[in-house]
Design a protein around this nucleic acid. Structure first.
Length: 455
DNA sequence: CGGCTTTGACCCGCGC
DNA sequence: GCGCGGGTCAAAGCCG
């Protein structure tokens, strides 16, 4: 709500002309030149000026030329020389007019520059709002589902679904628990930094809004001899730790392509197979990406968004703990991609989606028929939200097959990921459904990225 | 000299 | 309360 009013203020500010006047720092700017000071006034004066005077035909042509051309200086010089044969009186007025127009053009250029900057800020705010909408919807749906299945939740038998998920994880991922726990776990030092940065009381009162995407992680496993994979971004190492249960150190990187970019990644070699490098991405970039990085960034971002669309473990278990748990479990167990994958564990407190590029290729399952959900999920579960949620839940533990063979390290990781997703229409469909469900079809950018991945 | 890496210290949440 | 583990900071050193 506050954003709306602020937007209105900014728009009104721009239309009032205050924006350009206050920020104009042109050295040629003359404060007493009222005709070019104000938008409305200047346009009216300009019309009056040409209407009142018995202008030569060239002058009218000059105005048209100046307005229609971006090469103002060249045109003005041309017009100046052409008008050099006019009388001194007309010449002076023309020069005055040209200088005024030049000032106006400079001011407009400056304003254009500022508007571009403003647009960038608005885009940033839009992304932030989008994150908030996503979180709000997720919270809302979780609340509804919790009410519907509160009784069933008490009867959860954790090991019924997946042996890899201990009871502690289930408890920690329950809807009431998620916010508080993730709130505190989410990079404590970042929270402190954010408190310093933000003076907005609303943000401070609702720390839930801070770094919403840091909840989700996208992990990519690939074979690589190098210490890190080339994903197109610039990273700076800021730490290294020995993680428990792995003799290989874990390296921490943050994106340095823009100041304040929240994206971080962890790189660690697999303990069982040191040729496998696990890269875990966290956060969304706040800056444009080079072409070589867009595919990977779009993939991780979309996967994270899909994960956050309702595929938390709590939702998973809520679905399974409902009165139709039997059929849902059957659906889960029969889903083609879930038989060999389990990425959730007690050691992964964040919802994480893993793209595994190391597994030997295995036959891709044919796309399920349009009614495939109805084979396993009762009609009561086929609301739009639940449909998306159910798909997401299964893809939460999806591991994409390796397309380049088990021995050959991926030459270009981005291409490999793109190809893997392109070969998996279910993944693409799930992404599209999940994202469109979250944003209500308003985010064509992600869909476009998704489509680009197909190409 | 600026940017990056290294590395020990520190903070925080969690489990016991 | 204490210890552990994950994550981050920041000073020192390295490098092109």
């Amino acid at each position: 709500m506050e954003e709306h009013s602020q937007d209105r203020r900014e728009i009104a500010f721009l239309h009032s002309g205050e924006f350009s006047r206050r920020d104009s720092t042109s050295k040629d700017h003359q404060p007493d030149e009222s005709p070019v000071e104000h938008h409305h006034k200047s346009s009216i004066k300009e019309v009056d000026f040409f209407a009142a005077k018995s202008q030569p035909k060239d002058l009218g042509h000059m105005r048209t030329t100046i307005v229609g051309s971006s090469a103002f200086n060249d045109e003005s010089i041309l017009v100046n020389s052409r008008l050099g044969t006019s009388s001194d009186d007309g010449d002076d007025k023309t020069k005055t007019q040209i200088s005024r127009l030049r000032l106006e053009l400079e001011r407009l250029h400056e304003e254009n520059h500022k508007l571009k900057h403003l647009l960038d800020e608005i885009s940033e705010s839009y992304n932030d709002l989008q994150s908030r909408v996503l979180l709000a919807k997720q919270t809302q749906v979780e609340g509804l589902q919790q009410q519907e299945s509160s009784q069933a939740l008490e009867d959860i038998k954790p090991m019924d679904m997946n042996n890899d998920i201990p009871a502690t994880t289930l408890k920690r991922r329950s809807p009431d628990n998620v916010d508080d726990r993730d709130l505190h776990r989410d990079s404590p030092k970042s929270s402190r930094l954010d408190q310093n940065k933000s003076t907005n009381p609303e943000e401070q009162q609702n720390p839930h809004d801070q770094l919403p995407f840091r909840k989700a992680r996208v992990s990519v496993r690939a074979r690589s001899d190098a210490n890190t994979v080339n994903d197109g971004c610039q990273w700076r190492k800021y730490g290294q730790k020995m993680a428990k249960g792995n003799p290989c150190p874990r390296a921490y990187y943050r994106c340095t392509m823009a100041v304040g970019c929240p994206v971080r990644k962890q790189v660690q070699r697999c303990a069982e197979d040191t040729t496998i490098l696990t890269t875990t991405y966290e956060g969304n970039h706040n800056h444009p990406l080079p072409p070589s990085a867009t595919a990977m960034a779009a993939t991780t971002s979309a996967a994270a968004a899909m994960l956050l669309s309702g595929s938390t473990t709590s939702n998973l278990h809520q679905t399974l703990s409902t009165p139709s748990a039997t059929s849902s479990s059957s659906f889960y167990q029969n889903f083609p991609y879930t038989s060999t994958i389990a990425t959730l564990s007690a050691s992964a407190p964040f919802p994480t989606i893993t793209l595994d590029l190391t597994n030997p290729p295995r036959p891709l399952h044919p796309p399920p028929p349009p009614h495939f959900l109805s084979q396993y999920v009762p009609a009561a579960y086929l609301t739009n939200a639940n449909l998306t949620r159910t798909i997401s839940n299964n893809y939460q533990q999806l591991v994409l097959p390796n397309l380049s063979g088990p021995q050959a390290p991926p030459r270009d990781m981005v291409d490999t990921v793109r190809a893997a997703i392109a070969m998996d229409p279910n993944f693409t469909a799930a992404l599209a459904a999940a994202i469109s469900n979250i944003i209500g079809g308003g985010n064509d950018k992600i869909n476009n990225n998704n489509n680009n991945n197909k190409k």
